[in-house]
Computed example of a mutant assay.
Amino acid sequence: MASVTDKRPALKVEVPGSKEDGVKFGRVGIIAAVGFAIGIAWPRLAGVKLVPSVPVPAAAEASARELTGAPAETSKPAPAAPLPVPSVPAADKAPAERVLISDVQVASCRNEQGKRAQSCDRIEFDRLAREHLRELAACPGTESAAGVLSLGFELDFGAGKVKSIQSGKSTSLEQDVVDRFLACAKDGFANVPLAGIAHEQRAYTLYYRLELLSPAGSAAKPSATEPAPAASGESTPASGTATVSWDVALVRSQPARDGEVRARVLSGTRVVVTGKSGDWFRIKYDAKGSQGWVYRTAIGM
């Protein structure tokens, strides 16, 4: 038994050193890193998608239709354009066109002491007044009124306002209509300031003559306040006396509305008629025998 055991070769175990073992682990790490890099880069280079993309709404709807078998929606037609609304024809005449406004006529003026001045300067109240006067055409309850409305204004520059408004003698409208116009005029001029208007005196009395046409009347209709130019031709002699019926009659140098204003004659003044040309009359209007032309309705002709 001892001889058999002695003939077996001895078992030899070799343990690698630390140097040899580190080299083998290093190679394994390099191979793993190279494989990882190739695994990341290769799908990008080859254009292969490993994970499906998030579907866009259109694609999702198409996919849902394929799965459910629902028919595809047809595009809705654009809504038809609305039919044009027929325009309402305008009225024959705007309300403001019913009012024909004369030039402003300064009847009198007073100085700081309240005494009446011998002569009055022409103040620029007209640029403020005309807009408000045109608005009287829309005064409630006067839509069918037609005739003459004379409005007198008392301007007080000391107080800086229109002190009062009253109806003149040449007004031809019914009193209830006049009262409505006066109420509208007072409301319209209540807050009109006089600041900025050049003036020489403290207070002024002036008049406007308004001719109101009927709603069906023509805007081109000649009026007493804005007469058409007199027909050409020589004047004819005339004689007699007349009384001024307008609140203030303008006496002009010639028988035309663009003639120079020579004088202003107040209502009730007696004048002597000396000639006629168309719708104009030549009159003597003072004790000196001064003459000029007035429109026929100014003296009731």
Rank of each mutant, 00 (worst) to 15 (best):
residue 3 S to F: 05
residue 3 S to I: 11
residue 3 S to E: 15
residue 5 T to R: 13
residue 6 D to T: 10
residue 6 D to P: 03
residue 6 D to G: 13
residue 7 K to I: 07
residue 7 K to S: 11
residue 8 R to K: 13
residue 8 R to N: 08
residue 8 R to M: 13
residue 8 R to C: 01
residue 8 R to S: 02
residue 8 R to D: 01
residue 9 P to L: 07
residue 10 A to Y: 12
residue 10 A to T: 13
residue 10 A to R: 15
residue 10 A to K: 14
residue 10 A to L: 15
residue 10 A to V: 15
residue 11 L to C: 11
residue 11 L to P: 03
residue 11 L to T: 11
residue 11 L to S: 14
residue 12 K to S: 13
residue 12 K to V: 12
residue 12 K to H: 12
residue 13 V to W: 11
residue 14 E to M: 12
residue 14 E to I: 10
residue 14 E to V: 12
residue 15 V to F: 02
residue 15 V to N: 04
residue 16 P to M: 13
residue 17 G to H: 10
residue 17 G to R: 10
residue 17 G to D: 12
residue 17 G to N: 12
residue 17 G to T: 08
residue 18 S to G: 14
residue 18 S to E: 14
residue 18 S to R: 15
residue 18 S to H: 15
residue 18 S to P: 15
residue 19 K to H: 13
residue 19 K to S: 12
residue 19 K to W: 13
residue 19 K to R: 13
residue 20 E to Q: 14
residue 20 E to F: 09
residue 21 D to E: 11
residue 21 D to G: 12
residue 21 D to T: 11
residue 21 D to W: 09
residue 21 D to K: 15
residue 22 G to Q: 13
residue 22 G to N: 14
residue 22 G to L: 15
residue 22 G to S: 15
residue 23 V to C: 05
residue 23 V to K: 08
residue 23 V to D: 04
residue 23 V to F: 05
residue 23 V to S: 08
residue 24 K to T: 00
residue 24 K to L: 01
residue 25 F to Y: 07
residue 26 G to S: 05
residue 27 R to D: 01
residue 27 R to P: 00
residue 27 R to E: 02
residue 27 R to Q: 04
residue 27 R to V: 02
residue 27 R to L: 05
residue 28 V to I: 06
residue 28 V to Y: 04
residue 28 V to A: 07
residue 28 V to G: 04
residue 29 G to P: 00
residue 29 G to Y: 01
residue 29 G to H: 03
residue 30 I to K: 07
residue 30 I to A: 08
residue 30 I to C: 04
residue 30 I to R: 05
residue 30 I to F: 07
residue 30 I to L: 09
residue 31 I to R: 00
residue 31 I to Y: 01
residue 32 A to H: 03
residue 32 A to T: 04
residue 32 A to C: 08
residue 32 A to E: 02
residue 33 A to N: 04
residue 33 A to R: 02
residue 33 A to F: 05
residue 33 A to W: 03
residue 33 A to V: 08
residue 34 V to A: 10
residue 34 V to M: 09
residue 34 V to Y: 03
residue 35 G to Q: 03
residue 35 G to K: 02
residue 35 G to T: 02
residue 36 F to N: 04
residue 36 F to I: 06
residue 37 A to V: 03
residue 37 A to E: 00
residue 37 A to W: 02
residue 37 A to F: 01
residue 37 A to K: 00
residue 38 I to V: 10
residue 38 I to Y: 07
residue 38 I to T: 08
residue 39 G to A: 15
residue 39 G to V: 09
residue 39 G to M: 12
residue 40 I to E: 05
residue 40 I to A: 11
residue 40 I to V: 09
residue 40 I to R: 04
residue 40 I to G: 05
residue 40 I to F: 10
residue 41 A to F: 00
residue 41 A to D: 03
residue 41 A to R: 01
residue 42 W to P: 01
residue 42 W to E: 05
residue 42 W to L: 09
residue 42 W to F: 10
residue 43 P to K: 06
residue 43 P to A: 08
residue 43 P to H: 06
residue 44 R to W: 11
residue 44 R to C: 06
residue 44 R to K: 11
residue 44 R to Q: 10
residue 44 R to P: 00
residue 44 R to M: 12
residue 45 L to C: 06
residue 45 L to Q: 06
residue 45 L to F: 09
residue 45 L to R: 07
residue 45 L to I: 06
residue 46 A to Q: 03
residue 46 A to G: 02
residue 46 A to C: 03
residue 46 A to K: 03
residue 47 G to I: 01
residue 47 G to N: 05
residue 47 G to K: 05
residue 47 G to R: 04
residue 48 V to C: 06
residue 48 V to P: 04
residue 48 V to L: 09
residue 48 V to A: 09
residue 49 K to P: 00
residue 49 K to R: 12
